[in-house]
Design a protein around this nucleic acid. Structure first.
Ligand SMILES: [Zn+2]
Ligand SMILES: [Zn+2]
Ligand SMILES: [Zn+2]
Ligand SMILES: [Zn+2]
Lengths: 139, 139
DNA sequence: TTCTTATTGAAAATCATTTTCAATAATGGA
DNA sequence: TCCATTATTGAAAATGATTTTCAATAAGAA
């Protein structure tokens, strides 16, 4: 997995630094949408002393190679991390967990003469995990 | 149309001011996605002396009553204006024109136990109008 | 190991957005 | 129509997010 990322980075002449490894580890394990500042705090919390500037730069790089993508929620920019190509997300408004959705009507109808480059489909709501945490019988 | 908006505003105790009328006029006629700053400049360009702060406040109000919605493009926040309820957009990456899309698979499949509050579907590409402007035989 | 160059972090700079506050204008009622 | 109430406005200041700068460091190639 890290090997894939290394080569993805390498293709664009990016290096896989300690900071990037640490940040990728954090980001990819939590499967939650995060703001740059939340990511930075998560890093510090996990004992990874990394600069906020570096987090921003990292997100820029990851966006460029397509491992991450930003969206707006409540006026803030959140990033989702994922390694799959075309798919969509269900994002929990309560806990910000991200669930992948793999089915997609590729044949979205468009106005005549329009050429679609890409599309984004995001569903927002409350996820099962959050509901379980909150109201589950085993807590 | 303005009557509708007046009552929408009125329901939430908002007033229909000169500035809001002017801005709504500009926004609703251009059918282009715009950033707050672009809207402000468009207003100034059209001879409407309005403060940038007011544009921001207006967008907040319009978002609240659902006439406008923000999305991210190239790291900037753009707003689309529209008066219809549930539908989606085709946004031109070149000229930023917005086309409404009225068909939507409401039955989007979701992970078990997840409850969808709302969803967003945006298609990005090049629109017919832009292509015509650019390469059309009658220019 | 050594060289080259991408990357880092702290601080400063910039850009976007929000807050403050006194002046003004929109609505509702007399 | 006039008045009173209160939402709205705009300029400036404050805040917050993101980017730039630059010298020091570390990654990758040879
Ligand atoms: Zn995903
Ligand atoms: Zn799709
Ligand atoms: Zn629309
Ligand atoms: Zn829909």
């Amino acid at each position: 997995m890290i090997t894939n990322i290394r080569s993805l980075l390498h293709e664009q002449n990016y290096r896989l630094t300690q900071e990037r490894k640490a940040l990728l580890g954090l980001f990819s394990h939590a499967n939650k949408a995060r703001t740059p500042i939340q990511l930075h705090q998560a890093a510090l919390g996990a004992g990874v002393g990394i600069g906020l500037t570096t987090v921003y730069r990292m997100l820029e790089v990851l966006t460029k190679i397509g491992l991450v993508s930003p969206f707006l929620l409540d006026g803030a920019v959140y990033y989702t991390y994922c390694t799959h190509s075309h798919h969509h997300h269900f994002i929990c408004l309560d806990c910000h967990r991200v669930n992948d959705l793999f089915d997609c009507q590729q044949e979205l109808s468009t106005p005549d003469g329009c050429v679609v480059e890409y599309h984004k489909l995001d569903l927002f709501g409350t996820c099962a995990t959050f509901t379980r945490e909150r109201f589950g019988e085993f807590n």
